[in-house]
Amino acid sequence: MKKMIILMISLLIIGSMRLTAQSVIFNDNTIRNSIYMRTGIEPASMIAFGYQRNLNPKFIKPTITTFAEWNFSAFRFSPKNSEVKVGGVAPLLQKNSFKIVNNLNLSAGSVSTTHFESKKFAVADEVALGFYKPKWFFALTAEYEKIYLNHIEHTDFYRENYYEDAVDGWYKGAGGMFQFGLETGRTFFEKYDVHVELKVPFTERFNSYGGSPAHLNLAIGYRF
């Protein structure tokens, strides 16, 4: 088990050093950094704070935008109900302003409920197909996220009222989800980004996700 923890932590470290970003600053080679704030429903109401940085490694031709963000439940604002996500965005294919863009990210999250506390580790990949102009973009997106590992501890409340023999520990098999949607964004005054995305979630077996019928996000960013 420890191997898996270490593996996850290490992957997160790698991710934070190497991987990507959320919006379109990869489209602009003149800037290096951006900070952003994102809010919306995903699947609960959330607010995220993030940082992105463009990298131009010599051994890879396109610019890679790395990002790291920390998102919190808006109504249960606490590190116990938050998620750290690191990743990278890079164009896979481009022809003029049409691009296919890949966003690979890793996440580690925590949730605290009256029944259990869970820590989860997941990996997600999103592919976006769209038109990316210097001041705006529009893309269709498809994303898959797989939850690889959870650590679950049950509360006394859960044991007393529902299941006294509930097992605490590391769990596999939490499943995964697909999201299909669209996103668009525009840059104002060369430094300010506004980014909106709407996604419809399904479980990995294409059943109803069971929570919010759609995920909606609004992000604002500042380039520097």
């Binding site: 429903i41 699947p43 609960a44 109401s45 439940s73 109504f75 249960r76 109900n81 998620e83 999250g109 949730v111 409920t113 009256t114 029944h115 869970s118 989860k120 939850i147 959870n150 529902y162 098999g173 939490a174 499943g175 995964g176 989800m177 479980t203 990995e204 077996r205 059943n207 996700y209 069971g210 929570g211 919010s212």
Partner: peptide, 28 residues
């Protein structure tokens, strides 16, 4: 509402594709 936030947040940690997971999540 707190219960609804807990229920929604739990979807980030497990999906309800199988019986046990669905039962567990629904209890929230």
């Amino acid at each position: 509402k707190d219960w609804l936030e807990q229920y929604l947040l739990s979807h980030d940690h497990l999906t309800s594709d199988a019986h046990a997971r669905a039962d567990y999540q629904m209890l929230l």
